[in-house]
Design a protein around this nucleic acid. Sequence first.
DNA 1: GACGGCATGTAAGTCGTTACATGATTTG
DNA 2: CAAATCATGTAACGACTTACATGCCGTC
Lengths: 173, 173
Amino acid sequence: MTFNSVSYVILGFLRDCPRSGYDIKTIVDRSTRFFWAASYGQIYPELKRLAEEGLVEPVDEPSGGRRRTEYRITSTGLAALHEWLATAPRTNELRDEGMLKIFFADELEPAERVALYRSVRAHHEGVLERLRAIEPFARERGGHPYEVLKHGLALHDLAVAWATGLEQRESRS
Amino acid sequence: MTFNSVSYVILGFLRDCPRSGYDIKTIVDRSTRFFWAASYGQIYPELKRLAEEGLVEPVDEPSGGRRRTEYRITSTGLAALHEWLATAPRTNELRDEGMLKIFFADELEPAERVALYRSVRAHHEGVLERLRAIEPFARERGGHPYEVLKHGLALHDLAVAWATGLEQRESRS
DNA sequence: GACGGCATGTAAGTCGTTACATGATTTG
DNA sequence: CAAATCATGTAACGACTTACATGCCGTC
């Protein structure tokens, strides 16, 4: 069986407890979403596929009063997760339109440039706000998820500082 | 006409001087590649499309002894580039398998964890090395491309420091 | 004359998002 | 009972990579 980028997020989050596709989407959006997103269009088909391959299995009595399918990770699935975790990461991609626009910003008028810096800063401040809203809960739980969150904060702090610095440089010239 | 992510990189680099698809690919790989990649499979069809729409036009006497098609940006193309530059950026996506693995690293044995930190650090050190190789040329030219490069260096420096810190924390415990 | 780099392109396939469709249950 | 939220899924589309095919030019 071949795995794709969403396989391991699913396995990773099922390691804690059984969850439905909906649960996985929710928890991804509150955690890994900032560096590893996943959509329903990926999650549901992949859950089905992982179940066919025996890496996860549906739980008999799902929690809650609604019709839903919770999956639990199997020992095969746990082994696959572990094997993946123990190999060197490969994907590291950034796609940042703000950096691209700033790259070409020699083309702009000073006022337009300042507006660009501000919109880049505003974007990263928005992300920081959302990350800071999660921070108290992540801190309480600690562990590696919290380390990753702190790194995310540092990354976006750096971007804010960069945009701020460019704006100040502009006003000095 | 609808634009895609590669349209503006092309227009941006044609702003300086006429270039072929091959030239554009080469210059992208040496500059924006770290935050905005583009492949031949995108560049060639898009150049054709931009030419049909009158945003770029083939140059009559391409440089060099080989058969090649150089394109020059038109005034319409320049206007489109400018309009795009003057609107707030939207795309900002990170896809980082290293962060994802570290997120789930509570699952690993200490030795495996250290190996993970090291491979993450090695990745970012590799990028830093490539960026530093470009640095002298970018510094000489200056302007916004150099500002973006410096930010890229800072970003990967931060990632290296993060991985190093995690490793040290591991050895202390 | 072989090899590396220049040069253009396409086909196939993967990846991922968005929008839509559907319907149940809880809460105000 | 209306609205929000829970819950599952698919279809269509767009983005992007990889691999391949082709051939020329310059140089060793």
